[in-house]
Amino acid sequence: MKEILKVKGLVRKFGDKTAVAGVDFSIQEGEFVGLLGPNGAGKTTTIRMLTGLLKPTEGEVFYYGKDFSRHAKEAKGFIGVVHQYSNLDRDLTAYENLYLHCILHGIPKEERNSRIEESLEFAGLAEHRDRQVKTFSGGMKRRLVIVRALLHEPKILFLDEPTVGLDPQIRRSLWDLIVKVNQLKSMAILLTTHYIEEAERLCQRVMIINRGKIISSGSPEELKKDLGRYVLEVFHEDHIEERFYNTREEALEELKKCTLSSRIREVTLEDVFLKLTGRRINV
């Protein structure tokens, strides 16, 4: 497996506010990685630096070992991005939006039409191809943005909360689509999402970022194991206490001692996430 992306000591400041405070990681070809963190943790800022939309204050980014700042044009050829916000052209039709992307990415003229038709089909938008995007629903726009990012067959795809605001059916079908390109085309994916269970199901590796720093990284299994396999929830009057155990037996042992009502369940990635980033009530 080849390393596609390497990030070293990435820092971004806005005035005296540090949004990203020194981030290091790398991504292998075909790897599916999640970047999880609470609001304002620095996920979007990181992705924007990795895709050339923001200049890092410090640090280096390498694609296939080449410095991104000096080989930006080459690297951008195999990067695909889905932003947190929609940046479709409202005045153009679905077809025209995709056509624009084809031109910008230098897709040969004779291939454009077939690729666009295929993408529209894929996104279930074939019958809306000639409608202006401003008449689309949120879900339709989201699907269009995603197939647009795939048009030039990138080697690495950045997805910044791609499923936010979508209903469960569409979310599922989008994930099917993304998993398919990840596996068939061995496209690497860096995903941010607030649906932790999605990340748990999809990602081979997750990185947890808080206040601009990656505070933990590993496969969902590893991270859960570090916390303990089982959790004992004790229901106090005003809050729920959580205690973590490596085996069910240990947890049961404790449960018996408990006077308050309580229950045992398996640890989820969300537990790990909340434990590491802290529960915040007053943000």
Partner: peptide, 18 residues
Amino acid sequence: ITRFYFHLFDEYLIAPIT
């Protein structure tokens, strides 16, 4: 308008163009 309200410039900036 296209830049601030619709973020269209992002589409240019992420493309392999100068």
